[in-house]
Write a protein that binds this DNA or RNA. Structure first.
Length: 229
DNA sequence: CTACCGATTGACT
DNA sequence: GTCAATCGGTAGA
């Protein structure tokens, strides 16, 4: 039994998807509790996964930065659907991944801004190098593989074909319970509920600067912007 | 169909 | 820190 646990720990311990009830709550606690969870992408090429280290919440009400602020459109329709689905949108020719939250009809979501790569780093590196429009001077370093919402989608092969995907199915693309996995040391074992979550204004939004809705793990080298701005 | 905008990134001062 | 490439979504003719 103990031996089994140790074997599991070496690979990927926990890949069971979070249930829909996890997402069907206020977007801010969902965002904070997504820190430390495992984002998993399964393709024919293999598995890539990483620990979520940075997120942003987009509120259903009184949040001009929310894509759904002016009502439902074809683009943001997924946000009005059931929780636990992926909302993937394009910005500046790149893709960004959100998890839809709160009950159906309440258009809120959590933007996944950065993950700490754990599995499939070679795959991520290949995708990032191949798809970079401006060819990087050198291959992206490990810290840059999935730091930033669009880089993350590039590394995980996430594009509009996954818009609306049910993240609770445990296949193709899902978010799993906290992982113990791999040799990243204490950073990989941080309890997301414990102190260590920092709060800051969201990145890149041109309105609602008074709202501090970006959450990230302190001392993580994989966060897109470690400081308040 | 065209025009405009942007929850970004990579390059540069 | 600043700047703009670049293209999907959206609104409007």
């Amino acid at each position: 039994m103990l031996r089994r646990a140790m074997v599991d720990r070496v690979t990927r311990v926990e890949s069971r998807p979070l249930p829909r009830a996890f997402y069907e709550r206020d977007v801010v606690p969902v965002a904070r509790q997504l820190l430390g969870k495992l984002l998993v992408r399964q393709t024919p090429e293999g598995v890539t996964s990483g620990r979520i280290v940075e997120v942003e919440a987009y509120l259903a009400r009184d949040d001009p930065a929310n894509h759904a602020f002016c009502g439902r459109t074809r683009r943001n329709a997924v946000m009005f659907g059931p929780p636990g689905h992926a909302y993937v949108y394009a910005i500046h020719s790149r893709w960004c991944l959100n998890a839809v939250t709160e009950p159906e009809g309440v258009p809120s979501a959590v933007l996944i801004r950065a993950v700490e790569p754990l599995e499939g780093m070679a795959l991520m590196r290949g995708r990032r190098s191949a798809r970079s429009r401006r060819r990087p001077a050198e291959a992206p370093g490990e810290c840059d593989l999935a730091r930033g919402p669009a880089r993350l989608c590039e590394a995980f092969a996430i594009d509009r074909t996954l818009n609306g995907w049910d993240l609770t199915q445990g296949k193709v693309l899902w978010i799993a319970e906290t992982t113990i996995a791999s040799g990243r040391g204490d950073a990989a074992r941080r309890d997301p509920a414990a102190p260590g979550i920092l709060t800051a204004p969201r990145v890149g939004v041109t309105s609602a600067h008074d709202l501090s809705l970006r959450f990230f793990l302190a001392n993580s080298a994989f966060v897109s912007r470690p400081g308040p701005r």
